[in-house]
């Protein structure tokens, strides 16, 4: 058994008969920032959703602190200390900012302490505390989704393309916030299309192509890799 903090071993999953992941193995050590980059449709979101059992892994193991969690029901995963900031934010638009945050911390005994910290980190959420989440701007909604995930005081934070659809300035802010969260000791697994930002932030990185891990290395290594440069970094 792998003793690492969090790891996937030869994980496969599919939507119905359509396979999306092929023997994906990767690992994340405690305190690391690991990023997964890949093109549209490579299976990045599916990988994160497979960790949460939807779709369920049809093969392989997902180890979390030495335990295989691949067969746990979705609603049990959050209680283990894993939180997800999903693609498209998926905040509850008809609920207030306060309620959205409360949903994240519903099983945490530290909810009230953490709420203050999170509102300090995201002052905009404090200003809009009683407002319906659907009325927030894209950037604010992303902050809310991150805040909601942090409310459960997770040990591992999974983020799915948090920069998607945000203005460049907001993206810059976002990555600063992620760096700040990481500095406080959070382990982060970041899935991104914005490879440039993500690789600069990450300790290590994986490249997903057609549901398979094609490359891995430190963030700096991949930034210098000619193939990665050509495929994901454009002319940078």
């Amino acid at each position: 058994m792998d003793k690492s903090f969090f790891s996937l071993q030869e994980v496969e999953s599919s939507y119905g008969r359509l396979p999306v992941l092929h023997k994906v193995s990767l690992q994340v050590q405690q305190g690391e920032i690991v990023t997964l980059i890949g093109a549209n449709g490579a299976g990045k979101t599916s990988l994160l959703m497979t960790i949460f059992g939807n779709p369920r892994a049809t093969h392989g193991h997902i180890y979390w602190q030495g335990k295989d969690i691949a067969h746990l029901p979705t609603h049990h995963i959050a209680g283990l200390g894993i939180a997800l900031v999903p693609e498209g934010r998926r905040i509850f638009p008809a609920m207030t900012v306060a309620e959205n945050l409360a949903m994240g911390g519903r099983n945490s005994v530290y909810a009230s302490v953490d709420l203050e910290k999170i509102l300090e980190m995201f002052p905009r959420l404090k200003e809009r505390f009683k407002q319906r989440a659907g009325t927030l701007s894209g950037g604010e909604q992303q902050m809310l989704a991150i805040g909601r995930a942090l409310m459960s005081r997770p040990q591992l934070l999974l983020l799915d393309e948090p920069s998607l659809g945000l203005a460049p300035l907001i993206v810059k802010q976002l990555f600063e916030i992620l760096e700040e969260i990481a500095k406080q000791g959070m382990t982060i697994f970041l899935v991104e299309q914005n490879a440039n930002h993500a690789l600069k932030l990450a300790d290590r990185a994986y490249v997903l192509v057609n549901g398979q891990i094609e490359l891995s290395g430190t963030g700096a290594e991949l930034l210098d890799n000619p193939e990665v440069k050509r495929a994901y970094l454009g002319s940078l």
Binding site: F52, T74, H75, N107
Partner: peptide
Amino acid sequence: AFGQACRATQQDRGMAEILGIN
């Protein structure tokens, strides 16, 4: 809390599951 879980499930069932709601 139940009502909140109820409304969350109504708005996005998958996300509610991810947040630990049965």
